[in-house]
Design a protein around this nucleic acid. Structure first.
Length: 356
DNA sequence: TAGGCCATCTGGTCCT
DNA sequence: AGGACCAGATGGCCTA
């Protein structure tokens, strides 16, 4: 039955397709297997409904036959009043197939595009003050934090002096969600504490490192477990309303006790290194058991390693495309799997720019 | 279970 | 025609 129907209808379909300048021998259907854009390999395993639906449609000939039959009926129904306007192209079987293939290609492109976008976002995550491979900032928070970070750095450069930590954190956290705010505050606080112990022998005041981008001698241990002041869920580090809670250290330059950032040491210096503790980011904790293992959360500044500048400067609008899909122009040290203190954040660019 | 976040599909629009 | 981009819809996953 089906074969008879097929043999009767197919010639008409082929003739119609030929009338429209399309060849039913067109390799579109075959290209589904050869097309690089075709959903193959993992795509075929994609549990997404749409894909499976499209594939099931691709596999089914009955639908096409029905459509072809309908078209034949339409052709014969000359009694009906003709519609005005541009004649709508009939969906021949070939056109249906082409449409499906086009849709699948478009889906594949869209996936690739979103993957590129996400990889770019990942790279952005790595250069904003808080970064963790296991507890990623959400997309929107990453963008907000990046915007605030740029504004903060610009403000620092404009004023020529460094704000106190509280102000700095407030600048960074403007408009961020409470968990992210806590996170950033926790980062800065922990890092400040580290610098107090490492570089400020007097211990009375927070000081920025004397070198603009001094490299940390070792990766900071910034997990929640490493912070004796962190209290899970307490919101202790909230900057909203200056509710610092038990995590806040009185020795910080809050209020009017701001250090003398106008000292010559500060010329051209940038924001303090910050690191990420494992706490405070709600909803994104993928492997809580990893909190013990993830100590390499810090941002590290290395202004003297200008040899990396060339790599950093390779960031650009065309960077994402030049290396093909999923490949940003990121030098190897930026990729996951490296210790973060090996990374050369683009602060160097800023530094180099103002020292040229 | 509700809400947040995310990946994917999909159709529309604009541009080449 | 086809690609890029966008926004809406949908469903999955995770956490509080």
């Amino acid at each position: 039955m089906l074969s008879r129907l097929f043999s009767e209808v197919l010639p008409d379909v082929q003739r119609l397709a030929a009338d429209w300048g399309e060849d039913t021998e067109n390799e579109d259907c075959k290209t589904n297997e050869d097309d690089p854009c075709h959903l193959g390999e993992d795509d075929l395993d994609d549990p997404q409904e749409g894909s499976s639906r499209a594939e099931s449609e691709m596999a089914g000939d009955d639908d096409d036959d029905e459509e072809a039959e309908e078209e034949e009926e339409d052709e014969n129904s000359g009694d009906k009043p003709k519609k005005r306007g541009p004649k709508k192209r009939k969906m021949t079987a070939a056109r249906v197939e082409r449409s499906k293939v086009r849709r699948m290609k478009a889906n594949a492109r869209e996936r690739t595009r979103m993957h590129d976008l996400n990889s770019a976002l990942d790279n952005l995550r790595k250069v904003v003050p808080c970064y963790s491979k296991t507890q990623k900032l959400s997309k929107i928070e990453t963008l907000r934090l990046a915007k605030n970070y740029i504004l903060a750095l610009g403000e620092i450069l404009r004023n020529g002096k460094r704000p106190d930590v509280v102000t700095y954190v407030q600048m960074l956290c403007k408009g961020l969600s409470q968990p992210t705010t806590n996170l950033v505050a926790g980062c800065l606080q922990l890092n400040t504490r580290n610098f107090l112990t490492e570089q400020c022998s007097d211990g009375s005041r927070f000081h920025m490192p004397s070198s603009p981008f001094s490299v940390h001698p070792y990766p900071y241990r910034c997990s929640r477990l490493s912070s004796p002041h962190y209290q899970p869920g307490s919101g202790a580090l909230s900057l909203r309303g200056h509710a610092y809670g038990p995590g806040y250290e009185p020795g910080f330059p809050a209020g009017g006790t701001s250090p003398d950032y106008s000292s010559p040491d500060y010329e051209g210096q940038h924001s303090p290194p910050v690191c990420l503790n494992g706490a405070g980011l709600s909803g994104r904790q993928q492997e809580s058991s990893e909190s013990d293992r993830n100590y390499h959360y810090s941002m590290h500044y290395s202004g003297h390693t200008t040899s990396r500048l060339g790599h950093s400067m390779s960031f650009g609008p065309s960077g994402a495309r030049s290396g093909g899909p999923h490949s940003e122009n990121i030098p190897p040290p930026f990729h996951d799997g490296h210790l973060h203190h090996d990374r050369a954040p683009p602060y160097e660019d800023l530094n180099a720019f103002f020292h040229n």
